[in-house]
Simulated assay, not measured.
Amino acid sequence: MLSFFLMAVAAPTDLTLLDRAAEIFAGAPRGTPGGPLAPIDRRLRLAACGSSPEFTWRSDAHDAIVIRCPDNNGWRIFVTVAAAPAAVQATAVKAEPVIRRGDPVTMEAGRDGFAVSADGIAMNDAAPGARLQIKVEGAKAPVQAIAVEAGKATLPGW
């Protein structure tokens, strides 16, 4: 004997509503910077969710939204977010060199109660905080230093 069972099938989750909710969560419309990149794929057939879907960011980068149904064995999807425009970067003002190629330079390094210095000749120009090479008499290779002020440099890490 054959028995036929009818199962009540709930309507699948409305993807249009999820799209709109993702826009609200992101704070920007779809296709704009900071908003969902594209609509949720209409080929998806997500089971009806017995409670409200939860929206969270995938990471601190806010590059994707995670939408999940908290029901037992619920579904989870990711919605890619359009990249927000990079913050306008201030134009770097090039600092004038305080040490020029050929200048005599005193390199200093030290800690509490300890100091070492050496004199040399700058092999390139350097602004304050920039690295430069200093030729020290008797040394085979130049020494790398950091410009501090005119005629004065320090060794990296000191």
Rank of each mutant, 00 (worst) to 15 (best):
K94T: 13
I40W: 02
T91N: 07
G31T: 12
T91C: 07
R111M: 09
A48E: 11
A64K: 02
L37G: 04
P97T: 07
L44F: 12
P97I: 11
D19V: 06
D41W: 08
A28H: 14
E96D: 09
D19N: 15
A95N: 03
L44D: 00
P97E: 10
P29K: 15
W57G: 06
P33M: 05
V66N: 02
T106V: 09
D41G: 07
E54S: 11
G50D: 10
N72R: 14
A92C: 05
G102W: 13
A26Q: 00
A28I: 08
E108N: 12
H62R: 14
K94N: 02
L37C: 08
A109I: 06
A90F: 14
C69K: 01
D14A: 14
T80V: 10
R76Q: 13
V98W: 09
G27C: 11
A22M: 01
P39A: 01
D14C: 15
A109M: 09
T91P: 06
A48N: 13
A83I: 14
D103I: 03
G35M: 00
A64E: 09
G110N: 11
A47E: 10
G74Q: 05
A21W: 13
V81S: 01
L17V: 05
G110I: 08
T80Y: 04
C69L: 05
R68M: 08
G74P: 10
V98Y: 08
A109P: 03
S59P: 08
D41T: 07
L15F: 07
G74K: 05
G34E: 05
N73A: 12
F25C: 02
P97N: 06
T16H: 10
F55T: 00
A47Y: 04
A22N: 00
F78D: 10
M107H: 07
L46F: 06
S59V: 04
L17I: 03
P39T: 02
G35Y: 01
I65D: 00
A61H: 09
P85I: 14
L46C: 04
T91V: 15
Q89M: 12
D19H: 09
I77S: 10
D103T: 04
G102S: 07
E23M: 03
R43L: 03
N72M: 08
W75G: 02
F78W: 04
P39S: 04
S59Q: 09
G50C: 07
T80L: 13
D19R: 09
G50A: 15
K94D: 09
V105R: 02
D14H: 12
D14K: 15
R111C: 12
A47L: 12
L46D: 02
W75M: 04
L37V: 12
